[in-house]
Computed example of a mutant assay.
Amino acid sequence: MTADAVLHALRPVLDGLAATFGPHCEVVLHDYRNRDASVVAVAGKVTQRAVGGAMSEIGLGLLARGKDAEDQLNYVTRTASGRLVKSSTMLLRDEDGEVFGALCVNVDITELRHTAVLLGELSALDAIPDDTTTFTNDVTELVRAVVQAEELKLGRPVDRLSRAERLDLFRALDERGVFGLQKAVPEVAAALGISRASAYSYLTEIRKSGEN
């Protein structure tokens, strides 16, 4: 089957899965061939995704790994609004093994986690993660969220980073697949408060060094 045929065949599955797990479940179908608007179908409203929405950081990272990418099952994170979500991302591949999309299931377990305090291991979670994943329909918000996350790891504002540290930041963003998005470089430049020319220069330099 072609990629388009697979996506078409999966669309009816979304409503069935969401209905099976109830109002706390959301199922999202992604077409990664259009990274800036990869969401092609949604059932449920856990993360408020909408058709035409952008990829998440998780999707960007998986796509950046190419054929080495693996399904991500039963990972837990927080949404920007603080809801605790248990998710699985199942990759869709073409006949050559290239990833072209994903079927994602998100289950809001916030209340379940609260209940687990009284019911022991019902939620099967030993700890609540500190990581926050940005679920958004806007590419600008996605890029800036990833930039901020990497900036926090460095421990100080980007305007105080050395040139070497800025290159490390661009290398981290590239590894997370950010620059696979259309107009990502201008968005990153705006988020960092640098010129577009500087941003393109940093990107060119880290990619050249990676080839050596």
Rank of each mutant, 00 (worst) to 15 (best):
A3L: 00
A5W: 01
A5F: 03
V6R: 07
L7G: 03
L7C: 04
A9R: 10
L10G: 02
D15E: 15
A19C: 08
F21P: 03
G22W: 14
V28L: 05
H30Y: 13
A41F: 03
R49K: 14
A50C: 09
M55T: 08
I58C: 07
L62W: 03
D71C: 01
L73F: 02
Y75P: 00
A80Y: 03
S81F: 01
S81C: 02
R83K: 15
R83P: 00
R83L: 10
L84A: 02
L84H: 04
D94Y: 00
D94L: 01
E95W: 00
D96G: 04
G97D: 05
D108Y: 06
I109D: 05
I109H: 05
T110H: 04
V117G: 10
V117E: 11
V117K: 07
L119F: 12
T133G: 07
T134S: 07
F135D: 04
T136W: 03
E141K: 08
V146P: 06
Q148H: 13
E151G: 02
L152I: 04
P157M: 07
R163C: 06
R163Y: 14
A164N: 12
A164L: 11
E165G: 08
L167D: 13
L169Q: 13
F170M: 14
L173N: 10
V188A: 11
V188E: 11
V188G: 11
A189S: 15
A190C: 02
L192C: 15
I194C: 12
S198V: 11
Y200G: 10
T204D: 15
E205V: 12
